[in-house]
């Protein structure tokens, strides 16, 4: 029998998964960038399915309340996503800089 927490986590995982899938289908997100987001429903799914071993792990790690352990995992995953996004933004900044420079130089040549 699944506990209510397990059911909630499974529903969250499924909703998130379909959200990502529909964005991919409509080309609003590239496959490359979706990988890091697909990590989240996988994490949710694992929490739901491995509740028993995880709660004993949480206790041995010193978490008094199991939900705190879940918060830590989810916040950790979100920090990873943010980190990945910052890297992507920095790369794009560099690409945009090159683009602005080259276009400006080309415009100068044309004059």
């Amino acid at each position: 029998m699944l506990s209510s927490l397990q059911i909630e986590m499974l529903i969250a995982a499924i909703v998130l998964f379909f959200l990502i899938l529909s964005s991919l289908r409509k080309n609003r997100m590239s496959v490359r960038n979706s990988i890091v987001w697909l990590l989240l429903p996988v994490v949710f799914m694992l929490i739901a399915l491995l509740l028993e071993p995880l709660s004993s792990l949480a206790h041995s790690l010193g978490f008094e309340i199991f939900s705190n352990f879940i918060f830590v995992i989810v916040i950790g995953s979100l920090i990873l996503v943010c980190f990945y996004l910052t890297i992507a933004v920095s790369k794009q900044q560099d690409q945009i800089k090159k683009l602005i420079q080259e276009v400006s130089l080309l415009k100068k040549k044309k004059k």
Partner: peptide, 21 residues
């Protein structure tokens, strides 16, 4: 004689454009 950057890049990007030129 000048190059108009199509968007503001900051001092580093502007000077580098000069070096590219």
């Amino acid at each position: 004689p000048h190059i108009d950057l199509i968007s503001n890049l900051g001092i580093g990007g502007a000077i580098q454009t000069g070096y590219k030129y």
